[in-house]
Nucleic acid binder design. Structure first.
Lengths: 159, 159
DNA sequence: GTTTGCGTTCGAGCGCGCTCGAAGCCATAG
DNA sequence: CTATGGCTTCGAGCGCGCTCGAACGCAAAC
């Protein structure tokens, strides 16, 4: 099951031009994720990342995962929630370095909340800028497509 | 001069919520770039990439550049236009591999136009999807920011 | 005439984020 | 009883896109 990852499902849930309200996001955030504990394969499937990557994240200090009697990883709900957050941040371009710092702050306690908020605000701005860049690139690409082979404008050269 | 790269200047030219019409893009495309020929330093400055990267692109077969009597690179208008295109594609996430293929098609002549168009269409879709992903991530980040430290919803945990 | 500065070629190295292979443990299926 | 399959650890390797250093050439400035 779960041939699509969280992001894909989320994009399908909200139509392409949905308002993306706080409520809509809220509904995504805790949808589907219920289990008390999960295996590495289940989490990998849920997040559409490899078990290798999950182990790598753990090695990198991003999440702690308990073991069962056989030494196998047991992901509890908190670990899964954290990994959902982490993969979302990764997908939106936050570097591992920053995530490690962020998680260190989380583990350091409540007094780091302001700094964490700062990181999120900065990341928000980064995403916004990236969206603007991509929007511009999209327009340029569409312009090129529209004028390709025609005789409109200076972009007609062989590119 | 030119402390800002093309993208930054473009983003400033068009307001954040400009319509991004074909005309607006057109005006960006050939703005500023006039010189008959440019040095590597000038092109690097124009595109906000390093001279190292420009040489790398040339080595990669993305562009041919003539030399002057001293063996120094002389970028003619066509090379510069191509590099503008290439950097725009790189910035919007097209892999080097694909650009090499695209350029090979360009150099192969007019009969490759359909395939080139296919590549552009596919890239357009890639950008669109990426924008949707980022928009969702942005909303999730804003949601997290908005609810941070508050007692609203399930995301209040220490993340 | 030497210093400064900008260019050249070539090949190696790096940062990032995985990705993989080897060797081994355990449990269930046939 | 022996496969098969999924998990474990550990460390190495990889693909991408640069990025850099070394050794050198040439020219205009001092």
């Amino acid at each position: 099951m779960a041939t699509d990852d969280l992001m894909t499902r989320a994009l399908e849930t909200l139509g392409d031009d949905a308002p993306l309200t706080v409520e809509a996001i809220h509904s995504l955030t805790d949808a589907a994720v219920v289990p008390e504990s999960m295996t590495i394969a289940e989490v990998a499937d849920l997040l559409d990342i490899s078990a290798h990557t999950l182990r790598y994240y753990e090695r990198a200090g991003l999440v702690e995962v308990a073991r069962d009697d056989y030494g196998h990883r047991v992901y509890d709900a908190e670990a899964v929630r954290r990994l959902v957050f982490l993969t979302r941040m990764r997908l939106s371009g936050m570097p591992m370095r920053d995530l490690q710092h962020y998680i260190a702050l989380v583990d350091a306690g409540q007094e780091t909340v302001p700094e964490r908020l700062d990181m999120l605000l900065e990341h928000r701005d980064t995403i916004r800028r990236r969206i603007r860049e991509l929007t511009l690139s999209l327009a340029a690409t569409e312009y090129k497509i529209a004028t390709y082979g025609g005789s409109t404008g200076p972009d007609v050269q062989d590119l």
